[in-house]
Amino acid sequence: MTMPGCMGGWRWGVAHTLMAIFLVVMALSFLSVIRLELVVNGLLIGLIMAVGAIGLSLVYGILKFANIAQGDFMTLGAYMCLFLLGTLFPRMNIQGTGLGPFTFGYPMLLALPLVMVVLATLAIGLDIGVYRRLRGRGVSTVVLAMTSLGVAIALRGAVQVLWGGETEQYPRLSRQFYQAPMDVRIPPDGIFIGLVTVTLVVALYLFLSRTRMGKAMRATSDNEELARVSGINTERVIWWTWAIGAALAATAGILLAVFQAQLLPIMGWRVLIPLFAAVILGGIGNPFGALVGALIIGVTSEVSTEWLSPSYKPAVAFLLMIATLLVRPTGIFGVKS
């Protein structure tokens, strides 16, 4: 059973699609059909979703199951960062807000990589304790997905036990939005979001296309049995996949908390639909497809608020996903099977 990972040859597809979307959006906003500010906002949210969705898509491609816990990994990452920024670091006299143009301080630059590592380790631990045992038993992928639902619930429960159910915030300094042409206001933190996302996407691209382990991951995603008889230790590949997936989830959670200027235990569960919509739109197992998918979902749901109540945003993402399943179930960049 092979599932094309579709990670190669994505360059043209992705680039063309992005160009096309960009042109359409620009045309529409110049014609004043939509407000450009919504588009910019949608792109920022899309970038955040993309980080989480890329991780989800990698895990989906290699472990072949829908990791329902990805959203709650995001939540946990965001809260761990809160613990560092709000509790641990201040005790060590590491504190501050308002780094450069941003709302947060330099401790964020320490906390982000730290949380990524912790969550990556946790994900590997979960694999050893839970998923690997089930794989060894040869259970079907739906049972693995079911298990990840249990993990998701337990993670959220743990977050609520440790931090309570109330809304929280990172230590922050309020900032003026940048005023750009065409009535576009950009939050300064948006620049940070863009920088982090671009860095991670480029790093992931280099990892997947240049390194031995990266190529082994793509190979395993293509065909696990063939990978094994080629000498690839697929269990090791799976660990890397979990680590990257969870580190990306942590980043996405932190960026989301920064962007929304608040943390809530349910934040990760709520983004599960846009996350999966992005993955399906881009083609399962195709991380760069997930990036494009997330941008499309982000912009569409944001622009929809021009006509719909903003609270309908997840429903818009859901409708896009259903439309994809109807028209092209393999996603935009998926190979027809």
């Binding site: 298990t147 249990g150 993990v151 337990a154 429960g157 036990v161 309570g164």
Partner: peptide, 17 residues
């Protein structure tokens, strides 16, 4: 209630395992 939420998830995983 938060602990009980955790336990629900834990229970599901434990039963499957």
């Amino acid at each position: 209630p938060n602990f009980r939420l955790f336990m629900i998830g834990f229970l599901i995983v434990a039963v499957i395992l």
